[in-house]
Structure formats: structure tokens, C-alpha cells
Amino acid sequence: MTGSDAFGDLVEPYRRELHLHCYRLLGSLTDADDVLQEVLLAAWRGLPAFNHRASLRTWLYRIATNRCLNAIRDGRRRIPVEPVPPFEPPEPTRRGDVPWLQPYPETPETRTARRETVELAFIAALQRLPPRQAATLVLRDVLGYSAAEVAGMLGTTEVAVKGTLQRARATLARPMEEPIKRDEQKLSRRFAEAFVDRDLDRLLALLTDDAWLAMPPAPHEYHGREAVRAFLRASWAATTSPESLRPTRANGQPAFVCHLAERRAGVLVLTCAGDRISGITRFLDDAVSARF
């Protein structure tokens, strides 16, 4: 067995969870792919100096976390070009501020993780935190590392970690509790039927009053049923091509791969709240849909 083979066997059990960690911090599947390769290369080069003062997993997470922070600091995050819609959309309610956000396909890691730690809303919220606050929150509240371990990973003190974590939690203002699960499969099926039939009234009846529609990397967001109605009406009027939805899952949530005129047309992710849908996120990047 060669040295590279031995290294591969050593890190393989952690590869997918490290990828999910990079995704949480970067919010982008594409950027997580790139940074994970940097992490593995750095680990390969640094292995001779690894002295087992920490576990291999902790050592790898230290490398991954700092590589993500470096990528953000150095401006290496890929900011997509704002797409131009093929029709005149209604005025958006507001403009989104995380255009690089991408969905994460279902994996054993997302199935076993606490759902609220992989949901799109949480990933988007992390992107709005200062990077070291986001990293501290993930390491402490998601991965369960101690303050001392996080201090070692980030090259700081336990006191600083506690202060950073407190600020991150206060800014996030989101309880880390498992959401109540309803019959999402039935709800998402009803949504798909209404969407494919272009039955606006039936679709809107499935939404909460404050439901929203977002379409990364486009910044346009529509909040409230009437705003969603206006956008979908304009969008559907612009094309007569039939659209189909193939069910999948992303970020622990119901999702669909969209097909328009026999070609992929992005990924649509539903955010559910009880027996209604509170959010629709349609990712317009066809390259991302190829991952599902």
C-alpha cells in the first residue's frame, strides 16, 4: 500500500462530514467542493507533524474550519452573476443578501444530523454572521466541541470563544430545537400537483400567510401570498412549456428537481411549518440540479 493509499484510508471516514462542515460555513456546494480539496491537501502535507495531541477528527476539523475562514477572508467565495429573467418580474418585496446560497443533496450525514442544523434557513443565517462567529457557533452548538477545543482550533482563548458564541447566538436569535414534523410528503405532493397544473389558487392555499419565495442567485424575494401570486402569474404567463417536478430532498427538506421542456431547470426546496408551506426556494443554477 502506498502512502497516498494509507492517507486515503485514514481520512475517508471523515470526508463527507468535512464536506458538510465546509458547506455550513460557506453556504455553497461548489465552494465546499473546492475547499475540501484544499483541506485534504493540507492534511496530507501536515500529517508528518500531526502529534496526536488531539484526535484525528478534531485535527481535520481544525484544518477545515481555518481553510473556510481563509477562503471567506480572501474573497474566494464565488458570487454568481445576477441572472436576467426572460420576462418582466413584479417589483420584489426585498432583495436577498446571500446570492451564493446553494442546496445540499440528501446524504447519510444530513439524514443523521439534527435537521435544524442543515436546513436552508440556518445555513443562510450563518452566512450573515461574522465568519468567526459562524465557525464558533457551528463548532460548539452543532458539532459539540468544548470551548477549550474550539479555542485550540481557532487559535484563541476560551474566554474569547465564550464571548464570540454569546454574540453569535444573540444575533442568530433562533432556538436550536428539532422542528415539529408533519406529513411533509403529502404536503409536498399536493404542492407539486398544483405547481405542475399551474393552479395558483390551489397552490396558494397550501402556503402560510407570510410565506415567501426566493430564487438564488437572483436577489428577488417575494413575501406574502399576494406577492408570491404576482410573481408566479408573471412567470407562468411567460412560457407555455410544460414543467415537471421530480421529488428529492435537500438540506433535510422536501425538494424537487425541475424540468422544463425536457431539460433541467433548477432545484426547488420547500420549507414547511406544520401543515403549511412557509417558504419556497428555487435555485436557478442548472449545474447544481445535476448533483441531485
Rank of each mutant, 00 (worst) to 15 (best):
Q185C: 02
E106M: 13
P217V: 10
P217A: 13
P90I: 00
Q37F: 08
T208Y: 08
E178S: 08
I280T: 01
F87P: 00
E88Y: 01
Y145S: 07
D275V: 03
S55D: 06
V35N: 09
R174G: 04
A287T: 09
A250Y: 01
D141H: 07
C22W: 00
A194K: 10
P217D: 12
S188I: 04
L204R: 11
A135M: 03
A173E: 13
D31R: 09
W59C: 09
E119I: 05
G8C: 10
P92K: 11
P13Y: 02
E17R: 15
H52P: 00
S235T: 03
T30Y: 13
F87Y: 14
A218Y: 00
N251T: 01
P175W: 02
L204D: 06
F191S: 11
D9I: 01
V35G: 11
F283K: 04
T2G: 15
G27N: 06
L56Q: 07
P13N: 08
L129P: 14
S244G: 07
D31I: 09
R62Y: 08
Q127E: 13
D275Y: 00
T93I: 01
F292A: 15
R198Q: 12
M153C: 11
Y23L: 05
M215W: 00
L47T: 06
R233T: 15
L207A: 09
L165D: 10
R140V: 12
F256Q: 10
H21Q: 05
V98P: 01
P108F: 09
W212C: 11
V11L: 03
R16P: 00
G252A: 08
G279C: 00
L203W: 03
G274H: 05
P130I: 03
A287W: 01
P92F: 04
A43D: 13
A230P: 10
A64D: 12
R182T: 15
L126G: 12
L213T: 05
R167A: 14
K162F: 05
V118D: 05
A287C: 03
Y61P: 02
C258F: 03
A168P: 13
T65F: 07
W59K: 08
W100P: 02
Q253W: 00
W59I: 09
T93E: 07
M215Q: 15
H220L: 08
L26K: 07
E221A: 15
D183R: 10
T112F: 02
A173R: 13
D286M: 01
L36D: 03
L129M: 04
P83Y: 02
E119A: 03
P80D: 09
R16G: 12
R94V: 08
V288C: 04
Q253G: 02
N66A: 08
L154S: 13
A54F: 07
E221M: 14
A49R: 15
L268K: 04
A42P: 00
L284H: 02
H223R: 14
K186W: 08
L268Y: 02
R132N: 07
Y145H: 15
V161G: 06
T208A: 12
A43K: 13
R190C: 05
L20G: 07
D34Y: 04
L126I: 04
W44R: 14
G75T: 05
